[in-house]
Design a protein around this nucleic acid. Structure first.
Length: 591
RNA sequence: GGGGGCGUGGUGAAGUCAGGAGUUCACGCCGGCCUGUCAAGCCGGAGGUCGCGGGUUCAAAUCCCGUCGUCCCCGCCA
């Protein structure tokens, strides 16, 4: 049986007079008694079909979201009854034959856009949710984006090569998702956090240009831009340096923005060094859609009488300020900022409000000299009503605290503008809140100078870079180490003992010993990119079947218990305390 | 691990601060009317253990304690 010969969304006045067969869903039914109008929706769009209930006995049983097939003549709508809001609104199909292909129960929620349905309900019935325009448009945009990526890279000579998803666990970085092995009882695979080492092996293998839409897994807590599993556009190239990578990714982003948004991005994207980004914006992923820069005030307070400032400077700290504009906060609102700053690790926060006469209102204004106040007003370009926030602390903390306030007070709503940015020259090591140095990257990124890395770890720079869009980290990459001796030395400096390095990465270092070309690469989070292009607040909106914050899929009910024999076959037993907790939860009947 | 928001017929909300009969509104659903509608309209009807458990009270959607779910954030994400 043929279901259709024409697509609903493609009908125009040119089709008037044709007899067509359509199939789709009854999106809306307007029953006038003597005549019924049904909006027939399918993947290409919507068209109105007209049914005479007297000549179609099934018409009266027709309900929303029934799947139907109709035959009939396309005709121009009577003058005055055209619908300008509908692309097919000039025509309608007068039904001569109606088939109900599949009935629908009453829906758990309405498919029109008139209410924000609870997300849990949407996810439980995701197959219905995706009939709505929001998710449908997002998944289409995602497909368009991925198609553009594949097209640009394939035309540039890149090969799409799959890498394994059951791999060796390497316990640095994020927590691994583990998969037990039946054939090697007691051993486990890990799911890849990224195809990092495999793509480097492809370079050793001589492919020179690789890409993949790679599924990755990181078992960390969820955020609006983080899921347990996610897809990255992963690329790697041989005989490449940093700028080759940036230019390639820029070309991909230009094509994606053009195809998804219809906008032309200007290239090259601006670049900031990590240090600049931190000093001026307080974060390594600044949103440059708005200015609001952090100013260093240390020099202006070199001789200050104000104790909090003086002691911060004395102990090697800095004084930095931010003008968040006329936010109109009350006294208690301003004091709440102080608590937020302390929460973020700062010793304190000084707020000042610029009065109409240009003077400063603040609990600590009386401790500052007239000259200091004037310098402050000038450095922060204060105008009446502005709120000035000042932190005196270690540079890292001052940057972080003010960076958060900058984002809170400055971020535009939505994502109409696209502001791409490269952040380059990341440090090799990062300082923890406790002041300790820890590796900022995976151990395969090349330092600018490996000797420098050993002798001055606090200031050593890596050949690593991030792509930032509207204040979100879209992805990161680096020039890789291709010299096995450098690689071993880097392991050593990072505190990985030779034994440990051999056990975990010996197979990889061995590969580097067979004429490895210099190479570099990058990875872009696809859902993050598409969610911003689509103006969505979280990545679940651009994922077909996402999980909730607790890692649950409300549709299928995963994760779930498995049969005892499945566990036995894998040599696995739940630990007694885990079993006991599960038994108790089951016994109490708690929901 | 921590902080915060939310949970009321199928859906969305009001009611919760300040306790007094499951009260209200919109949509949906079911039935009826209707030959030009298009988020159709009009009339009628059904539908809720106020997430769950405990406590306070003569009385709890409302106050208290606990718990579950969900969302946002911090930690975490080499």
């Amino acid at each position: 049986m043929n279901y259709r010969d024409t697509r609903a969304g493609e009908l125009t006045r040119e089709d008037a007079g044709r007899t067509v067969q359509l199939a789709g869903w009854a999106a809306r039914i307007r029953d006038q008694g003597g005549v019924m109008f049904v909006d027939l929706r399918e993947a290409t769009g919507v068209v109105q079909v007209v049914i005479d209930p007297a000549s179609h006995s099934q018409a009266e049983s027709l309900r929303r979201e029934f799947c139907i097939s109709v035959s009939g003549e396309v005709s121009l709508r009577p003058a005055g009854s055209e619908n300008p809001d509908l692309p097919t609104g000039e025509v309608e199909v007068v039904v001569s034959e109606l088939h109900i292909l599949s009935a629908s129960q009453a829906l758990p929620f309405q498919l029109d856009e008139r209410a924000d349905v609870d997300e849990l309900v949407r996810l439980r019935y995701r197959y219905l949710d995706m009939r709505r325009s929001r998710v449908a448009a997002n998944l289409r945009a995602r497909s368009v984006a991925v198609a553009a990526m594949r097209r640009v890279l394939t035309e540039a000579g890149f090969l799409d090569i799959e890498t394994p998803t059951l791999i060796k666990s390497t316990p640095e970085g994020a927590r691994d998702v583990l998969v037990p092995s039946r054939l090697q009882l007691g051993d486990f695979y890990a799911l890849p956090q990224s195809p990092q080492l495999f793509k480097q092996l492809l370079m050793v293998g001589g492919f020179e240009r690789y890409f993949q839409i790679a599924r990755c897994y990181r078992d960390e807590d969820f955020r609006s831009d983080r899921q347990l599993e996610f897809s990255q556009l992963d690329i790697e190239g041989s005989f490449w340096g940093r700028d080759d990578v940036l230019a390639t990714i820029e070309a991909v982003m230009v094509a994606v923005a053009r195809d998804v948004r219809g906008v032309e991005l200007a290239t090259p994207f601006p670049r900031l060094t990590y240090q600049e980004a931190l000093d001026r914006y307080g974060t390594d992923k600044p949103d440059l859609r708005f200015a609001m820069e952090i100013a260093d005030l240390s020099d202006h307070f070199a001789a200050t009488e104000f104790n909090a400032f003086a002691s911060a400077l004395e102990s090697g700290g800095v004084i930095r300020g931010l003008n968040v504009g006329a936010a109109g906060l009350s006294r208690s609102g301003l004091d709440a900022l102080v608590d937020d700053a302390k929460q973020a690790g700062a010793a304190g926060l000084v707020w000042m409000v610029v009065e109409d006469d240009g003077s400063l209102r603040s609990p600590v204004a009386k401790f500052l000299s007239a000259d200091e106040q004037a310098a402050l007003m000038e450095a922060l370009a204060g105008t009446p009503g502005d709120h000035l926030l000042i932190v005196a602390d270690r540079a890292r903390i001052a940057a972080e605290v003010l960076g958060r306030f900058r984002t809170r007070f400055g971020s535009p709503e939505g994502h109409d503008e696209l502001n791409f940015l490269w952040v380059v020259d990341f440090p090799v090591f990062e300082e923890t809140p406790g002041g300790e140095l820890v590796a900022a990257h995976h151990p395969f990124s090349a330092p600018v100078d490996v000797e420098d890395m050993a002798t001055s770890p606090a200031t050593a720079i890596a050949q690593a870079y991030d792509l930032v869009l509207n204040g979100s980290e879209l992805g990161s990459g680096s020039v890789r180490i291709h010299d096995p001796d450098v690689q071993q030395k880097v392991f050593e400096i990072l505190g990985i003992s030779p034994d440990e390095a051999e056990r975990r990465f010996g197979w990889f270092v061995e590969a580097l010993r067979y004429g490895t070309p210099p190479h570099a690469g990058f990875a872009v989070g696809i859902a993050r990119l598409v969610s911003i292009l689509q103006g969505e607040p979280n990545i679940r909106e651009v994922i077909a079947f996402p999980k909730t914050q607790t890692g649950v899929d409300p549709l299928t009910g995963s994760p779930s218990p498995v049969d005892d024999h499945q566990l036995a076959e894998l040599g696995i037993a739940l630990r007694p305390e885990v079993q006991a907790a599960r038994d108790e939860a089951a016994g109490s009947g708690a929901d």
